[in-house]
Design a protein around this nucleic acid. Sequence first.
DNA 1: AGGCATGTTACAGG
DNA 2: ACCTGTAACATGCC
Length: 289
Amino acid sequence: MPELPEVEVVKQSLERKILNLRIKKIKINDGKLRYIVDKNELFNLVGKKFKKIERRSKYLIFHLEKHITMIAHLGMTGKFFFIDKKNKKFKTSFYYDLNLEKDKKHDRIIFIFQNDEKLIYNDIRKFGFVKFCRAVDYYKNRHIRDLGPEPLSKDWDQRYFKRYIFGRNRTIKSILMDQKFVSGLGNIYANEILFLSKIKPTRKVKKIKEFEIKKVINYTKKILKSSIKYGGSSIKDFSSDNGKKGIFQQYFKAYGREGKTCSNIDCNSIIKRTIISNRATFFCNKCQK
DNA sequence: AGGCATGTTACAGG
DNA sequence: ACCTGTAACATGCC
């Protein structure tokens, strides 16, 4: 689920749900996430309201009353569910639907609000985490501090790109996934961006031409915005009834398409798969140079 | 049974 | 110190 567009959709979704609800109670089902959840810090949120949510890269920054901030990362399988109480029956009102019976055991943290609505942090593989800090200090947090520019910001431009890759000996795909270079891209979008830019993922950055840098930047901005508009990508199967689901995965042109025909209409080549930086890498040998 | 999975980081080696 | 690539984390699915 979570690269930049997915996290942005989560942020927007939660912002419409949980702001100004007062936390009545918090339960921890399993506090052994990527880092052990600090219970004192977590329970300190009881009685407070969420006031604002920000996204930085793939991190969610929850600002509460009393200048308390919770930093959350979803890892690979982390999800936030909001549960409201309409029709006397709890239901998810979140873009990514949940088969409650099956997935309940992966609920890790449950925030219960005064009106009995709930916010649940659910995480199968437990690579996600929550940490706490003072609001003014969150950007000093060690996870946030060294992040590169946001790919949708003006700071991530041709000049920066050129300067960063100068003298480096890495593949273009590995650098796109490097959060210090640009923050928020992951394996799926790196594959898609390079397919659209017609650059082979294995190409070394020193061999990337100026006009190609421009393409990478432009396609990155384009595809991220487009994915956000479509509610992000939901890769795993999910049941859907009243919740909204991300549908951007149906527009993937390279990711997960090994053995299928290239998406470019004038090409009948087969999408290949290889490994870069321990991650599945998909490309068209003919279209991507 | 073994390989694979949307992420991050500790560590090893140059 | 810098740069790069690999393995590990935990769980489920095919």
